[in-house]
């Protein structure tokens, strides 16, 4: 009984997160929405409610799990001065609010994963990637399970060939 109550509370909490709080892109980078060298794609919480309805049974289990937890997705991308934009983005994000999960630097690209936590739950996951050719930033809002993400990578590895084939049809 008590458990059920906590779940309800959690659910309500994560909903309110998705609906009311601005994601990092909205908060720090909305100035780029009008900039012609950037593209932004946004999937709203309302849209995610509809997405869960079109999820088929054949969908990868991890993908299904993850999508059911996501309340919002925003992607920002640019091909103009990607490294400069990447560095600027790292400096802009408030690290008291967002905790750095991993930073990877190598020849081809730089990556940084940041999370925003509410209790033990990750409420926003950010991925910033900057290379010579492009800058991409993804913001996932909702309840993001890192284990599912790790598992998804492995299943993609196995299904990789098939996934690729699907992509090429498009």
């Amino acid at each position: 009984m008590k458990k059920k109550f906590i779940y309800t509370l959690l659910l309500a909490f994560s909903f309110s997160l998705g609906n009311s709080q601005a994601d990092a892109i909205e908060k720090y980078f909305s100035k780029y929405y009008d900039d012609e060298s950037f593209s932004t794609v946004y999937v709203s919480p309302k849209m995610f409610q509809m997405v869960t309805k079109v999820l088929g049974d054949e969908e990868n289990a991890e993908v299904k799990d993850l999508i059911q937890g996501i309340k919002g997705l925003r992607i920002l991308r640019s091909e103009t001065n990607p490294m400069t934009v990447y560095k600027e983005a790292l400096n802009t994000i408030n690290t008291r609010e967002y905790e750095i999960l991993m930073t990877v630097r190598d020849k081809e690209q730089n990556l940084q994963f940041l999370t925003k936590e509410s209790g033990d739950i990750i409420s926003e996951l950010l991925l910033l990637a900057g290379g010579d050719e492009e800058f991409i930033m993804l913001s996932f809002i909702g309840n993001i399970n890192l284990n599912s993400i790790a598992k998804l990578a492995k299943s993609l590895d196995i299904d990789g060939a098939e996934y690729l084939e699907q992509l090429e049809d498009k």
Partner: peptide, 11 residues
């Protein structure tokens, strides 16, 4: 986006 995320995460 999830594929992109998880591949980078794993790597």
């Amino acid at each position: 986006a999830l594929a992109f995320l998880s591949i980078n995460f794993d790597k």
